[in-house]
Design a protein around this nucleic acid. Structure first.
Length: 449
DNA sequence: TTAGGCACGTGTGGCACAGT
DNA sequence: ACTGTGCCACACGTGCCTAA
């Protein structure tokens, strides 16, 4: 069995002994409700074409489609852009959110019903178009960090405080009744639901012990959950009475969020709502400060994990950590960005990639396996952001002197199927999307073709 | 092998309420 | 009064299962 969440040593040394003083606790403010940083660009682009709100919104819809910005944090795949009035209303909601946040950053300004670009806004467009999205994200990072009481610093710092032994790994277990082996048909009464809750409780307890090294008693929390659901008549007081089957989803949803909130606020002591945490974390992921995923492939854990790819210290000797930003108190944010020029990093990447492939193949039991799954495990092992993985994979694919041989195939791209939203993005290598991967050891070692 | 039906899982957007 | 924030029910996409 592949071992979940083991950690390379160098990362641990960076994580412990931080020596940074506990910051005067300023709680980050909530962001507006959207995930993709590209929304800022497409809004500004729209404003550069017209000053009329209605026209800007039309442009926003067009560019949203062109940049494949789906709902929430998922990229959109299908070419069709069926514009039901319902969807337009949804997109208007997102549009208003982006306008509101861009106004706060003074990228745009409103006067007598017109929306205007500020100099800052014009500057931002230039950065995106001339210097690329990484520079654009950095520019936005500074605005967000200043405008919301340093949410990213808070996010990264707290990760290490929570679980420094595993260099800041956060787990958010999600197990539906189905996943714990309880059939839908067998859950009809309050008693049945409580049986699922008990099973869930003990599974969560095990995960906490295994991945966070803590022993906790969750009886009180489980009772709280049951009490809340009973008070709101989602569950019946009488154990043998049946609950409203139409409320099944609502009950499961409530229990899932209850435990996620428990992890975030009680266990990890984040003073953020679930919503705010999600949005800040997914924005941090785009900048490359941390990784968050719901798809880490592992037989013994299901749910969401997050871990930092950066660290806040006053100084660093490591060549793999690059200075990213300096705060007012002269603490600095360092991002883990190992260089491909260093042969040791090449060797480590090859090692991690191969190990990830072996682990995933063991679960999938096929020669070709899902590239996004291999990517998840390799990124975790090396603590690198996704865009670096894509780059490294491209280099390794072309390097004939490595001790592995990589085969990449497209298989079926998601846009050839019916899926609307790309929950797993295919990996871009050589300007082509790839979905599956196989690896052989080269030069007379085992498994050579 | 495929089509249809049903259940699972979760993002969205409205809403209530807290903060000022 | 007004704005910002957290919460959660619903709608809908997805994928499994069954029956030919």
């Amino acid at each position: 069995m592949p071992e979940a969440f083991s950690i390379p040593n160098e990362i641990i040394y960076m994580a412990i002994d931080l020596g940074n003083p506990v910051r005067t606790t300023q709680i980050p403010q909530a962001p507006r409700k959207f995930y993709f940083l590209e929304y800022f660009y497409i809004l500004l682009k729209g404003v550069s074409i017209s000053n009329q709100s209605e026209r800007i919104f039309e442009q926003f819809l067009k560019l949203k489609h062109q940049y494949r910005l789906g709902e929430s944090k998922y990229k959109k795949l299908t070419e069709e852009s069926n514009e039901s009035t319902n969807q337009r209303a949804r997109y208007k909601y997102t549009f208003d959110q982006v306008v509101s946040e861009a106004t706060n950053y003074e990228l745009i300004s409103e006067s007598s019903g017109e929306i205007l670009l500020t100099d800052e806004g014009k500057n931002a467009i230039q950065i995106y178009e001339n210097d690329g999205d990484r520079k654009f994200n950095y520019y936005l990072f500074k605005l967000m960090e200043k405008g919301h009481q340093e949410p990213f610093r808070y996010l990264v710092d707290t990760c290490y405080k929570v679980n420094y032994k595993k260099s800041g790994l956060l787990i958010f277990p999600i197990y539906s009744a189905h996943r714990l082996g309880i059939e839908r048909d067998s859950i009809k009464t309050s008693k049945d639901m409580k049986r699922y809750f008990r099973k869930l409780q003990s599974r969560i307890k095990e995960d906490i012990s295994k991945h966070l090294g803590m022993n906790v008693n969750l009886d009180k929390e489980n009772n709280d959950l049951i009490r809340k659901l009973t008070e709101e008549n989602l569950l019946q007081t009488d154990d043998l009475q049946e609950f409203d089957p139409n409320k099944y989803n609502a009950i499961l949803r409530r229990s899932r969020d209850f435990w996620l909130k428990y992890f975030l606020q009680s266990l990890y002591k984040y003073q953020l709502s679930l919503d705010s945490f999600e949005i800040w974390a997914y924005r941090a992921k785009q900048i490359g400060l941390l990784h968050i995923t719901e798809f880490y492939p592992d037989p013994s854990f299901h749910g969401k994990i997050a871990y930092p790819l950066s660290v806040i210290r006053d100084s660093s000797q490591s060549t793999s950590f690059k200075m990213f930003y300096e705060y007012a108190d002269s603490m600095k944010l360092y991002c883990h960005q190992p260089s491909w020029d260093d042969k040791n990093n090449q060797e480590e990447f090859v090692q991690s990639l191969h190990q990830a492939y072996v682990d995933v193949r063991q679960l999938a039991k096929t020669y070709f396996v899902s590239l996004p799954n291999v990517k998840e495990r390799a990124c975790y092992a090396m603590k690198i952001p996704e865009y670096l993985f894509d780059k490294f994979l491209g280099y390794a694919y072309h390097n004939k002197h490595l001790r592995i041989r990589i085969s990449l195939e497209v298989d079926k791209l998601p846009d050839e199927t019916k899926v609307m939203y790309l929950r797993r993005e295919p990996v871009m290598v050589d300007g082509k999307y790839r979905n599956i991967i196989a690896i052989d050891l080269a030069h007379g070692e085992k498994n050579v073709y």
